[in-house]
Design a protein around this nucleic acid. Structure first.
Length: 974
RNA sequence: GCGGGCGUGGCGAAAUUGGCAGACGCACUAGACUUAGGAUCUAGCGCCUCACGGCAUGUGGGUUCGAGUCCCUCCGCCCGCACCA
């Protein structure tokens, strides 16, 4: 009987669900292991084959750990709040909750078919009040906390209030100075806002008009929104933010202790952007003002030839001389109006203007001109720089453009042409710099700061690039922020009143006055009288603590019980995409640390080990449409035929096809000195066709025509003629097979709009879930991105059927109780060893190969012995759980294979009886010598040294040295 | 520009601490079986050579008895950050 995966997979999936085979226990004597996947946002498109890659890997590891005797927590849930459901709601009026529910049902159905070992009793949904109650609760905890720089941890805001009370601290309110007890309630609230971890403030934010909301820095890429790619502008707005900057140093330092990939850690380090240097004050000549700058190169202070302020810098209008005022203000206005995107687009354009003011050099007393320039960013450091053109490329470009002096203060070790470029490296000796002369740069930096501190015009300073995270969103589909306003003062909602349920609204759009959608809610008042905050939380709120909720997902009294958290601690293995490096993965670390500081959880990091699975790309099928002739297609472009080069101009309509191979055609063109790609671009538009209409690069023309109405009149030019209205018209020279219309392939992101989506359901329907699981692993290393190629799946499909046939002879399940032979045992134990090692180092692709090797060997040996097949079922079960369960049952086991024990290999089965060692001299193999492998290294050495055979071969020479690699090779040095 | 990673057959790839390079799979070729097939089995499959043998892990060099692996040079690709002072 052939392996009937359809019935068998269904049978075991319902068995697992009924018996709750994978439910984790919260109080178990077993050692715990927590395997977490980044939970998905359930989009309308459903899962494609790329999505389950990480889930399959984590599932294999979870199943392996269970067999190893661990109590494994392997949960799944839904990151259910988000923009797409809301955009859909705006278009159709369907409530996002319904859209989300439907999408989840679809995701769940697809996931179930793959046979994951998730503990569905712990399923969570961030958009359910039972869940977001605790998201809101955590928000309140952060709102009611501040970061105490002295203790370097978050503490209750009450501790700060009592500090203010006892010290009766003074505060600057407008121009007046008041002590704490003199402050009004509003003023107190404003003061405390400066300290709270979740706070409301007026600040420049990324405003996306198309989405109608603000975005955090990580949600903006290249000046446009990550979702949708809409332009983003800078706007000053009152906004809720999270004080993640307080944790910059800890977020950076604690990276040391976690097992995450180097590139990911580096991305986070980069994003945090720590730089050490010095803050220095420059007084303005003839005025009360000082410019404060930040520099990492205080050693170059004697090379300062001018200063630059950012256009937004508050001193600009104060210090500008009357003669320059008009020009400067005009420049400032222009610069402010340019969006970030415009500024980024022409980084190379140098602009700036002299203010007419002069600063005084703190060491030399010389006057140095103060400029305004938009190459200085308002948002970093102090928004002002001391310019050292000789040793900073940006200052150099500016100075060159405006003809400012470029005094050199560091001597490069090699010849350096300062008329061409600046010398930015932190190497060499300092020159022309008074007390710093002759010092190496590194020492000069220290000395300079010491001197600056001693003389009192600056101090050692550390700067971070990390900004606080904007937390409010002017959108509907998110957690309401649990804040109300009393006399304009934002106040925390009483914990007892949580959750604040997301209210119903008539439309999912802003109000006429531009208020967020929540302002539309009718009779939505706290205690029937106070206005609620109307912005909602961002997408990353719910995901910043979800790993904790899984530990105790159904707890109604707490976000998670203490006992549960003390048992599960943190995630042992976290698998997910690297695109979350500077978003989710930074926020979840931040919240974890804050919750730890407040004594709410026992760990400082969410995940000990993290693996970024690669992306699975799609392979798009492309055809080429002649420009200006919108109904004529050319399958594969080709120009070289009969030694002639066809041109892509007027006659393009008549191009023939003589090659299946785009790359070959390209080569042909290029060898004739033509730029193939440019010609294609000039004359053709590429169009993606649905991959289901293509088989082995051949397009099914009639199916394509009926599926895409806009092309129904098109002509398809092939090698031996052309297709029109579904009929093929032959050329005179037509030969067999020349009526095929070929496509060319390109690797792209898998997406609906590119018609290249491969659906896991289809693969499962055709080959089964186990086959899909094995194939996804077999494709290549987990962390690598790779294109999906359905052709190769026959390999894993064959493997599964071969495995089945080992147990089933002549349509009959047959195993023998005979003792296994040494060869069979060796094959098995080799597999145990390799698969164990492979799983431990997450090299799942090589495991699949090793299974294939073993099954091939056993097939050759015609082995159907229970003593071999039973362990084999255990070994393969993490990868192909359905077939393993079925075989396990056929082998007369009452319980699921999940309760079996992982096997240990025995070295004795792996050794050889004898082994002919290659004997080589200076690395070249010269002869083979039969030696027993049981011998130790030393014994082999002795044996070789005294061997008559060796002596004879090397003309009586006695080897000087023998290098032995057990089981491998013997090398002789004469 | 800065940072991280990578470069092995026609393709996906393997080689765990320096030790028989290309396992395993795809594709391809030939054959067997066959009322013909997207089934199964056998053999072949880096390059040059009829062969013996030689040459091969982006390039050039180094360390070593021995290098895909370690060190240096250059070339190429991918990812992240980017006027961050």
């Amino acid at each position: 009987m052939e392996y009937n995966f359809r019935d068998i997979e269904k049978k075991w999936q319902s068995y697992w669900a009924e018996k709750k085979t994978f439910a984790a226990e919260n109080n178990s004597a077993k050692e715990k292991y927590y395997v977490l996947d980044m939970f998905p946002y359930p989009s309308g498109a459903g899962l494609h084959v790329g999505h389950p890659l990480g889930y399959i890997a984590s599932d294999i590891y979870s199943r392996y750990k269970r067999l190893k005797g661990f109590n494994v927590l392997h949960p799944m849930g839904w990151d259910a709040f988000g923009l797409p459901a809301e955009q859909y709601a705006i278009q159709t009026g369907q409530h996002p909750a319904i859209t989300t529910k439907n999408n989840i049902a679809r995701y769940r159905e697809q996931m179930d078919k793959i046979g994951f070992s998730f503990d569905w009793d712990r399923e969570i949904n961030t958009s359910f009040p039972e869940y977001y109650k605790w998201t809101q609760w955590i928000f309140l905890k952060l709102f009611n906390s501040r970061y105490n720089a002295k203790t370097a941890k978050a503490e209750s805001i009450e501790s700060l209030i009592s500090e203010f009370k006892i010290l009766n601290s003074k505060f600057k309110i407008g121009t007046a100075e008041k002590s704490w007890s003199e402050l009004s309630e509003k003023e107190k609230s404003d003061v405390l806002m400066e300290y709270r971890l979740a706070y409301l403030s007026e600040a420049y934010v990324n405003w996306c008009p198309a989405l109608g909301t603000v975005l955090a820095n990580d949600e903006v890429k290249d000046g446009v929104s990550e979702r949708g790619g809409y332009p983003v502008e800078r706007k000053k707005m009152k906004q809720w933010s999270m004080r993640i900057t307080a944790y910059a140093e800890r977020l950076l330092n604690d990276l040391e202790g976690i097992d995450w990939s180097d590139s990911l850690k580096e991305q986070q380090r980069n994003w945090i952007g720590k730089s050490e240097g010095s803050e220095i004050q420059f007084t303005i000549h003839d005025s009360q003002f000082t410019i404060q700058i930040f520099t990492t190169r205080p050693d170059t202070i004697f090379g300062v030839s001018y200063m630059t302020l950012a256009p937004e810098h508050e001193l600009v209008e104060k210090i500008v001389s009357d003669a320059h005022r008009d020009e400067v203000m005009k420049y400032v206005t222009e610069a402010k109006n340019r969006s970030d995107r415009e500024r980024m687009a022409d980084v190379k354009r140098i602009s700036g203007v002299f203010t007419g003011a002069y600063a005084v050099h703190p060491f030399t007393g010389k006057q140095i001109p103060v400029w305004v320039g938009d190459y200085v960013l308002a948002g970093y450091g102090t928004g002002a720089v001391m310019a050292v053109p000789a040793h900073d490329s940006r200052d150099y470009a500016f100075a060159k453009h405006f003809n400012l002096p470029k005094p050199q203060v560091v001597q490069p070790k090699t010849d350096w042409d300062f008329s061409k470029e600046s010398f930015d490296e932190k190497e060499g000796a300092v020159i022309n710099s008074d007390f710093l002369n002759e010092l190496q740069v590194k020492d000069a930096i220290k000395k300079a700061i010491d001197e600056i501190e001693k003389r009192g015009f600056g101090k050692r300073q550390i700067n971070y690039r990390l900004r606080d995270a904007v937390f409010g969103r002017q959108r509907y589909w998110g957690e309401p922020i649990p804040i109300y306003f009393e006399n304009g003062i934002p106040k925390a909602i009483d914990e007892k009143d949580l959750p604040i349920i997301l209210p119903e609204v008539d439309k999912y759009l802003p109000t006429e006055d531009g208020e967020p959608p929540l302002a539309r809610a009718k009779n939505w008042k706290y205690k029937n009288k106070f206005d609620f905050e109307t912005t909602t939380m961002p997408g990353w709120a719910g995901s910043s603590w979800y790993f904790l909720r899984y530990m105790d997902a159904n707890n109604e009294k707490e976000f998670a019980g203490k006992d549960a958290m003390n048992y599960w601690k943190n995630v042992d293995l976290y698998i997910g995409g690297s695109e979350h490096a500077t978003g989710h993965l930074l926020y979840v670390r931040f919240w974890t640390k804050a919750l730890y500081d407040l004594g709410l959880i026992p760990v400082i990091e969410p995940a000990k080990k993290l693996i970024n699975q690669g992306m699975i790309q799609g392979v798009s099928e492309k055809i080429y449409l002649k420009k200006g002739q919108s109904n004529s297609f050319s399958g594969v472009l080709t120009g070289v035929q009969d030694g002639l080069i066809y041109n892509f101009g007027e006659d393009a309509y008549h191009i023939f096809l003589n090659s299946k191979n785009y790359d070959q055609t390209k080569k042909d063109f290029e060898s004739s000195g033509l730029d193939f790609e440019a010609l294609v671009e000039q004359n053709f538009v590429s169009i993606n066709v649905d991959i289901s209409l293509v088989e082995k690069s051949e397009l099914n023309v009639s199916k394509f025509l009926s599926s895409r109405k806009e092309f129904s009149q098109s002509v398809f030019i092939c090698e031996g003629g052309y297709w029109i209205n579904g009929t093929f018209i032959k050329n005179q020279s037509f030969q067999d097979g020349q009526d095929k219309f070929f496509t060319s392939q390109e690797v792209e992101k898998m997406s609906k709009s590119k018609y290249n989506v491969v659906n896991p359901d289809d693969i499962i329907e055709k080959h089964g879930a186990d086959c899909l699981r094995l194939y996804e692993m077999f494709l290549g290393p987990l962390e690598l991105s790779k294109p999906w190629n359905t052709n190769g799946i026959s390999g894993t499909s064959n493997f599964i059927r071969k495995l089945w046939r080992l147990f089933n002879k002549e349509f009959q399940f047959t195993v023998s109780d005979e003792e296994p032979t040494k060869k069979e045992l060796k094959s098995l134990h080799k597999l145990i060893k390799k698969v164990t090692e492979d799983i431990e180092r997450f090299s799942f692709n090589t495991s699949v190969s090793n299974f294939m090797i073993c099954v091939n060997e056993l097939t050759d040996l015609k082995c159907n012995k229970r003593a071999i097949l039973e362990p084999l079922a255990i070994l393969v079960s993490p990868y192909a759980p359905h077939i393993a369960e079925e075989l396990w049952q056929l082998l007369d086991h009452k319980e699921s294979v999940t309760f079996a024990k992982w096997l240990d290999y025995k070295e004795e089965f792996l050794t050889e009886d004898s082994f002919a060692y290659p004997i080589s001299i200076n690395g070249k193999t010269k002869m083979n010598l039969d030696l027993s492998l049981a011998l130790s290294k030393e014994e082999i050495e002795k044996e070789v040294m005294s061997s008559e055979e060796v002596k004879k071969y090397f003309y009586g020479q006695q080897p000087k040295k023998v290098i032995v690699v057990p089981g491998r090779i013997v090398n002789i040095v004469l």
